[in-house]
Simulated assay, not measured.
Amino acid sequence: MTVHFHEEDLPAGVLAGDGPIAVDTETMGLVTHRDRLCVVQLSDGGPDEHLVRFKVGSDYDAPNLKALLGDPNRLKLYHFARFDLAAIEYYLGTMAAPVFCTKIASKLTRTYTDRHGLKNIVTELLGGEISKQQQSSDWGAPELTEAQRDYAASDVRYLHRLRDVLAGRLEREGRTEIAQACFDFLPTRARLDMAGWADKDIFSHE
């Protein structure tokens, strides 16, 4: 297992085949317009992870990464896709769909708990452990520590296996169709967030 670190773009041909890609992002904060995109993490399900880092002042001209994320024939796996989709589209100009979101799949199947964080579902479903110590660290620093790099890689390391387990649970509970409808809506949900409706339920009667 190796974590590969790249500056400003993903080298051509480093991700295998045409199967699903696990994707995550690290930003300076949770307000997309304000808090710049710093790192995009990717995994093709093999033993390695790839981190693409964007420095302060970046123009986000990353043609290889954009082509990969924008490929409509390649499924992208996320945990809480709503946030990552918004950050990627805002900074890279690409809607990185189609989508499978493990957080939504967890909420639709693990209704016996309210613990749907990545750490929780990795522990329960895969028997793995993720440290969250670096989650709130400075992702815009001139140099990222080894601890930061390993944390970032861990956020995509398990998503292929989680998708397999959760897809089976969705089928078992008869919720595959409604999950897919949620996944299909996520790009629109991210755009609603960016347009100012992040905290407003437009479907409510209010």
Rank of each mutant, 00 (worst) to 15 (best):
V3Y: 00
V3N: 08
F5N: 01
H6P: 04
H6W: 10
E7G: 02
E7Q: 12
V14A: 04
A16T: 06
A16I: 01
G17V: 00
A22Q: 09
L30G: 05
R36A: 13
L42I: 06
G45A: 10
G46L: 06
P47M: 00
L51S: 05
L51Y: 02
L51D: 04
K55T: 10
V56I: 03
D59S: 04
D61E: 08
L65C: 02
K66E: 02
K66R: 13
K66P: 01
D71K: 06
D71V: 02
P72Q: 07
P72Y: 02
P72F: 01
L75G: 11
K76P: 10
L77Q: 14
L77N: 07
Y78K: 05
F83R: 06
I88S: 00
I88P: 01
L92A: 13
G93D: 09
A97W: 11
A97K: 15
C101S: 03
K103F: 03
S106D: 01
T111P: 06
Y112I: 06
T113S: 15
R115L: 07
G117D: 11
L118S: 06
K119N: 13
I121S: 12
E124V: 14
E124Y: 13
G127M: 10
I130C: 04
Q133P: 00
S136L: 15
S137R: 11
A141T: 09
L144S: 09
A147E: 15
Q148L: 03
R149P: 05
A152N: 05
A153E: 06
A153G: 12
R157E: 14
L162V: 01
L162H: 08
R163A: 09
D164S: 13
G168N: 08
L170T: 02
T176R: 11
T176A: 14
I178V: 15
A179E: 08
A179K: 09
C182Y: 02
C182P: 07
L186M: 12
P187W: 01
P187H: 01
L192Q: 13
A195S: 15
A198F: 06
K200Y: 11
D201I: 08
F203D: 12
